[in-house]
Write a protein that binds this DNA or RNA. Structure first.
Lengths: 179, 179
DNA sequence: TGTTGGTGTTTCATAAACGGAACGCTCACG
DNA sequence: CGTGAGCGTTCCGTTTATGAAACACCAACA
């Protein structure tokens, strides 16, 4: 790019190396299977090269990992508030609706209120660890690990970690297409 | 690459164009903001070029979209059985556990039994549409839209869409690290 | 009907990613 | 000790992605 400093965003190279070594495969082996040069894979893993999408795909396909997983260490879009850090995992466009799947981390003991979204928006939340008080601000639900909650997001809603630990959760926001 | 045919996996180019146009931005504008050449972005969107990871990142960052979302149309790793299509959305490595987040589609009326996983594996499933009978094969649970189920996966487990429609769900598999 | 300001595409020299081959290295085996 | 097979890195000529600029096109406006 115009300023020739560090190239690859995130630690994709090291991450690929981890994935490869976790499978007990040698660099030479993966390069051969993927049909790319050893030099290419070496440079990719050590970060001295800035791989082509095609190259990256050839490698991740061989490792049996989707590209998105390999890019997991790359800076994802995050929406951080006082208490909540949301990482957009994926979006779907589905028959008139947009789904946005987030991973949520709510800091221990913290609380955050989100403003209302547009009409028709619903949120589905699953807690994997910790306990979360969440839902519409006037009638929040207590959701423990392994539990699920759902509410309409066209009113203000709240997130509050009630245990002494951070809350890990997944959040699916369903937005009807405005068009 | 060695055989110079179609390069970019999936329809990343067209997808980026959609994302850009959905935001009402011109190609020139995005190229300028992203600090890349118009020729590059043009070639990227039309699919005649095979972009560098760095280029791709510059564009997606400008569009406010994580790389993984831009790659959503790319062929993700799928595990298909008789009834279930599972798309790996993302993996986390978290304090001694590996989390794998899948999107599940269970064909209407179909049924599939999965063999037992290793000891300690748990599965958390959230249904977004349809109704699913799932869980351990001898004691399955009925899970409707918006509901959640959780079970230990070290015994055989079953997936069965009971309504007349396909079931859309998310599945989180938690695997304690063997090391 | 210029002319200006925008669009997206194409041309082109340069820079860089590419694969093949050579390198140095470690380890297993005779 | 060889020495052969594997490893990951480095060298190097070829391929190709890159950005600046020129291009054709369109709409607004004097």
């Amino acid at each position: 790019m115009h300023h020739g400093t560090v190239t690859t965003p995130g630690g994709i190279g090291p991450r690929l190396r981890e994935l490869r070594e976790a499978r007990g495969l040698s660099l030479s082996e993966v390069a051969r299977r993927a049909g790319i040069g050893k030099a290419t894979l070496s440079g990719l893993e050590t970060g001295v090269r800035n791989p082509t999408l095609e190259t990256l795909y050839a490698v991740t396909a061989q490792l049996g990992v989707p590209l998105s997983a390999a890019l997991a260490a790359a800076p994802a879009q995050r929406v951080s508030g006082a208490a909540v850090t949301a990482t957009l995992l994926r979006t779907f466009e589905e028959q008139g609706c947009t789904f946005e799947l987030y991973r949520l981390v709510v800091a221990a003991g913290a609380r955050q209120v989100s403003p209302a979204h547009q009409a028709g928006v619903t949120e589905d939340l699953t807690v994997f660890a910790g306990a979360l008080r969440t839902g519409s601000a006037d009638a929040p639900l207590l959701v423990g690990a392994g539990e699920h909650a759902s509410w309409r997001a066209d009113v203000p809603h709240v997130y509050e970690a009630v245990g002494g630990t951070d809350v890990q959760a997944s959040l699916l926001i369903r937005t009807p297409s405005a068009r």
